[in-house]
Design a protein around this nucleic acid. Structure first.
Length: 272
DNA sequence: AGATTCGCCTGAGAGC
DNA sequence: TGCTCTCAGGCGAATC
């Protein structure tokens, strides 16, 4: 389930293989993703070159000659690098980016919550990106920002830090981990956090995400980087998926609770 | 406006 | 073995 670190790992993984390369053909085997892939996209993209690959939140931005492709992995999507003579399609290999040198970027997405969109305008003005909050690793995301943004909110803090309008890229796994790291219970009202709480929490979010990127992301079931290697961050998860196990910090028992219809994990002893 | 719920999907795992 | 049921989850849309 790709969150920001997995998307960033993917970006870093594909960049050396496709940057500066020219697309010979975009093959769309199944256009039925979260939004249908524009049937004219293959024709439009043919012979265009990849000039830059950026990330905004969990969106990958592939800057081409006449516009920008927005790629979202949803929750089960992945990209892998292969070659044109690789005829062994796996189930759910929906899209191939075939480049003139024989390199293929292959998009696989069993649950089809992912997306491939195209914009010829400034991509950050795109409907889906315009509303997004700051990048968690940017300096503008800090304790002051967090406090000012959430101190009147009644919603639960875990729900709020997962809201992409507040800050992008914090999914279910890292939300639990960051709150553990900051010693804040996930079911506190966001507005009950004081400035010091917000300083710790913003720092924890940055720390957890940066660590996860460094480890190549988290592999729970099936995440692989574009070269097929798993991530290693799951080896240092403190609470996620550890219900009834002992707390690494205080020896208490990790609890599981549904918050905002999502499984949440925390230590009731050392998170307040 | 903010909070909450829904819907899109399929694979994995549990239970029978 | 094989069927059915439940759960997982990003996030926009719809609803309260």
């Amino acid at each position: 389930m790709p969150e920001l670190p997995e998307v960033e790992t993917t970006r870093l993984g594909i960049t050396p293989y496709i940057l500066g390369k020219t697309l010979s053909e975009l093959v769309v085997r199944n256009p039925k993703l979260r939004w249908p892939v524009d049937s004219e996209l293959p024709q439009r993209l043919a012979r265009q070159t990849v000039h830059k690959i950026e990330r905004r939140g969990k969106y990958l931005l592939l800057f081409m000659d006449s516009g920008c492709a927005l790629l979202h992995l949803g929750m089960s999507g992945s990209l892998r690098i292969t070659e044109l003579d690789d005829r062994e399609l796996r189930p759910h290999d929906h899209i191939d980016w075939q480049f003139t040198d024989g390199t293929v970027l292959r998009f696989n997405d069993p649950r089809r919550f992912g997306a491939l969109l195209w914009t010829e305008a400034e991509p950050k003005q795109h409907e889906l990106l315009r509303q997004l909050g700051p990048e968690p690793l940017d300096d503008v995301f800090d304790g002051d920002y967090l406090y000012n943004t959430i101190h009147k909110r009644q919603a639960l803090i875990k729900t709020v830090i997962m809201d992409s309008h507040i800050v992008v890229g914090v999914g279910n796994i890292y939300a639990s981990e960051a709150l553990f790291s900051a010693a804040i219970r996930p079911d506190r009202a966001a507005g009950s956090l004081n400035l010091d709480d917000c300083l710790r929490l913003s720092a924890s979010i940055k720390h957890v995400l940066a660590q996860a990127i460094q480890q190549g992301g988290t592999t729970l079931r099936d995440f692989r980087n574009p070269q097929g290697k798993p991530g290693y961050f799951q080896q240092q998860l403190h609470v996620y998926g550890r219900a009834d196990q002992d707390c690494h910090r205080c020896g208490g028992i990790i609890e599981q609770k549904t918050i905002g219809q999502r499984a949440s994990y925390f230590c009731g002893t050392c998170q307040f």
